[in-house]
Deep mutational scan, measured.
Amino acid sequence: MDSLVVLVLCLSCLLLLSLWRQSSGRGKLPPGPTPLPVIGNILQIGIKDISKSLTNLSKVYGPVFTLYFGLKPIVVLHGYEAVKEALIDLGEEFSGRGIFPLAERANRGFGIVFSNGKKWKEIRRFSLMTLRNFGMGKRSIEDRVQEEARCLVEELRKTKASPCDPTFILGCAPCNVICSIIFHKRFDYKDQQFLNLMEKLNENIKILSSPWIQICNNFSPIIDYFPGTHNKLLKNVAFMKSYILEKVKEHQESMDMNNPQDFIDCFLMKMEKEKHNQPSEFTIESLENTAVDLFGAGTETTSTTLRYALLLLLKHPEVTAKVQEEIERVIGRNRSPCMQDRSHMPYTDAVVHEVQRYIDLLPTSLPHAVTCDIKFRNYLIPKGTTILISLTSVLHDNKEFPNPEMFDPHHFLDEGGNFKKSKYFMPFSAGKRICVGEALAGMELFLFLTSILQNFNLKSLVDPKNLDTTPVVNGFASVPPFYQLCFIPV
C-alpha cells in the first residue's frame, strides 16, 4: 500500500510540474494548442506526416506557434517570411542545433551535424575549407563525379535492359564520391566492405524516417530501456565508426604531411598542428563522427533524390523527352556531361530543381535551437528552445509555385524558357546551418541524371499514369515507394 501511495504522489508531482512548466512558459512563447500533461501535443500531431499537421496548425495559430513534445516546448516556423527572418536575418541567433537524443547517444555531441557552439563552428569551418581545397564546386571533385558517372552508366548497362530496382546502384554512385573525398578511394560496386557500408546507410535513412524515431526523440528514456529499431540505428553508426577508425589508422601509418590526399589526411594534419593548443576540438573521436556525418549527409540524401527523380521522369515521359532533346543538342553522344553545360541547359536545370522542390526530401529539416534569449515577432523565446522549420511550407508555397503539388519544371523557367532562380528554393535548409555539401549534391544530381539520360531511355513496367509517387515514409525524410524500371541503351 505504501508503495502505491508513493507512486501516486510521484505521478501527481510530475503532472503538477508539467502543468507549471507549460503555464509559466506560455506567456512568453508564441500561441499554440493546449498541451496535455506529460505528453504535450503529441496526440494532435500525425507522426506519419508531421508536415501536414504543421500546415493545419498554422492555419489556426499563424506562421509562428508553439507545440509541446512531452514536456519540451518547440517553436514552429511556417512559411517563407518566418523562416527567412529566423535563419537568414537572425542567422546567428537561430544557428543552434536542437535536442536530438538519439544523435546524442550516437555521437556524444561530436561531428558537424549535431554539434553546437565553438566545437560546431570550428569543425564546420575546417570541413568547408577542406572540401573547397579539394575542389568542391571546382574541377578536381567534378572529375571524381564524372568518373563515377561513367562507372554508374557501365553498371546500368550490365542490367541488359531487364527490369531492376535502382535503389542499390543509385546509392553506390554518391557513396563512392564521398569515399573518394574521405578515403581517396572508390570501391567496386561488388566489394563486400562497400556493400556493408551501403547497407547500413540505407537502413539508417529508413529507420530515421519512421514514426518510432519521432517518439524516441521526444521521450528519450525509451532509447535506453525499450527495444526497437533505434538500437539497430545505433549499432549501424557504431559499425561505421569502427570502419572509419580502421581507415584512420591506415592513414596514420602512411600519411605524407607534405601531400595530403583526402579529408582524413587533412584532419590528422590539423590534429598535429593543434596538439599544443589544448583542449582542441580536433580529436580522433571528432574525426570519426565528422566522417560519419559526411557519409550520412552525402550519400543517402543524394541517392534518395536520384531514385525519386527517375520515378518522376517515368511518370512524366514528356519531361524526359525534353531533357534528352536538350542533352542531344548541347552535349551530344561523344563526350561526358560537365558542369559548364548546365548554363546552356535551362530546361534540365529546371527539372533538377523541380525534383528537389517537389519531393521535399527533408520536410522539417533537422531541429534548430536559439543560442540566446531572443525577441522574435513580439515573442520571447528562451535560450536553448528547439525550433522546428517547415521546409515544406517554403518549397510548396502556392504563391511562389502555382499548383505546388504538381510536378512542373516551369516553376523554374521564365516566359522565355530561361532558368529562373527562386529564393524559396531551400531543399538544403538556409542560413548558417545550410548543408555543407550543397554544391557537391547539386553537381552530382546534374551529372548523374544527364549521364543516365544521355545513355538510356527509361521504360516503366506499368502505365506511367498508374505510377504512385507518394512517399512511403514522410517523417525525417521523404522516401519514394518501391518501383522497377528498364534502362534501355540509346
Rank of each mutant, 00 (worst) to 15 (best):
I488L: 13
K232E: 06
L128G: 10
K118L: 08
G475K: 08
I213G: 12
N56D: 15
L447M: 14
S24G: 03
T371P: 07
S53G: 09
P382G: 02
F425T: 07
S51L: 04
Q484E: 14
G296R: 14
T450C: 12
W120V: 06
P363S: 08
V60R: 14
F412L: 01
G91A: 11
L102Y: 15
S429V: 04
V76F: 08
F401Q: 03
K235S: 12
S478F: 06
R26N: 09
V145G: 00
Q454L: 06
P337I: 11
T371L: 09
H353V: 03
F376E: 01
L467E: 02
S127C: 13
N334Q: 15
D414V: 05
L54E: 00
S343D: 14
I223M: 06
G96A: 15
L11T: 15
S209L: 08
R377K: 15
R144D: 06
N418G: 06
K249G: 07
I205V: 14
H78Y: 10
L7D: 00
W120L: 03
G332T: 05
N277L: 14
G171S: 13
I205H: 10
Y61G: 00
K235T: 09
P279L: 14
M406W: 10
M339R: 05
K235Q: 14
K190V: 08
G109Q: 13
S365L: 07
F407G: 00
V394P: 11
F282G: 03
Y61R: 01
A86V: 06
T305D: 04
V145K: 00
G431Y: 14
Q193V: 14
S220K: 15
H78P: 02
D143Q: 14
R333V: 15
L128A: 14
E148Y: 00
P37D: 01
P317C: 02
E288V: 14
A161T: 10
V113A: 15
H411V: 01
W212S: 03
H411R: 11
G298L: 06
E300N: 14
K273T: 14
F100R: 06
K315D: 02
I99N: 15
F376M: 11
L156D: 00
F110S: 15
F446A: 00
K235D: 14
L156M: 03
Y189E: 00
P163L: 06
M271S: 09
D262G: 12
I141C: 03
K200H: 10
T305M: 14
Q192R: 14
H353P: 00
A106W: 15
S115L: 05
P404T: 09
T299P: 02
V473S: 10
F407R: 00
L43C: 13
L197V: 08
L128E: 10
R144S: 08
K383I: 04
M443S: 08
I74A: 02
D2G: 10
D256R: 10
P480L: 03
E199W: 07
K375L: 07
D143R: 07
C179S: 15
V83A: 04
E285V: 06
R342C: 06
L440D: 01
T386W: 06
K383H: 06
N258Q: 12
M339Y: 13
N196A: 14
Y189N: 03
L128H: 14
K247G: 05
Y483L: 02
R26A: 11
S3H: 08
L19E: 01
F419H: 11
L17V: 13
H410L: 06
K185T: 08
K160R: 09
E85K: 04
K206M: 15
G442F: 06
R105T: 06
E326S: 01
G417C: 08
L7G: 08
K84F: 09
V177S: 01
A106L: 11
F110Q: 10
L36G: 04
Y61K: 02
S115Y: 02
G111I: 02
K235V: 06
S365T: 10
E92V: 09
F407Q: 00
L380M: 08
G98L: 06
S286D: 14
V83K: 01
A321F: 09
N334M: 13
N277Y: 14
G137M: 07
E328G: 12
K270P: 03
I222E: 02
T385R: 02
A350F: 01
I207L: 10
C216G: 11
N204A: 06
F401A: 03
Q252D: 05
L306Q: 01
G228A: 04
L294I: 14
R357V: 00
F263L: 12
S429P: 05
E81M: 07
F94D: 04
L447H: 07
F295M: 12
S53R: 12
E93H: 12
C179P: 00
N231H: 12
V60H: 10
Y189T: 03
Y379E: 01
Y424K: 14
L391E: 11
L14K: 02
L102N: 08
K420P: 01
V5Q: 04
K119T: 07
F187Q: 05
L485R: 00
M426A: 06
L314I: 10
F487T: 00
V76L: 03
P174F: 05
L311P: 01
Y308G: 06
I123F: 10
I45V: 11
D463H: 14
N217E: 13
Y243G: 02
D89G: 09
V351Q: 00
S242L: 04
T450P: 01
L87G: 08
L197S: 01
G137F: 15
M345N: 01
L314Y: 02
D265A: 05
I178P: 01
I387P: 00
D262A: 07
G137L: 12
M136L: 13
P174L: 07
D191Y: 01
N196V: 14
G171V: 06
I205R: 14
F183T: 07
K315I: 04
I88D: 09
K206F: 08
E272Y: 10
L29F: 07
P37I: 02
F263R: 03
L67V: 14
A103D: 08
G27A: 15
H230V: 10
H276C: 12
I223V: 12
V370Y: 12
G135F: 12
E93I: 06
K28Y: 15
R186V: 03
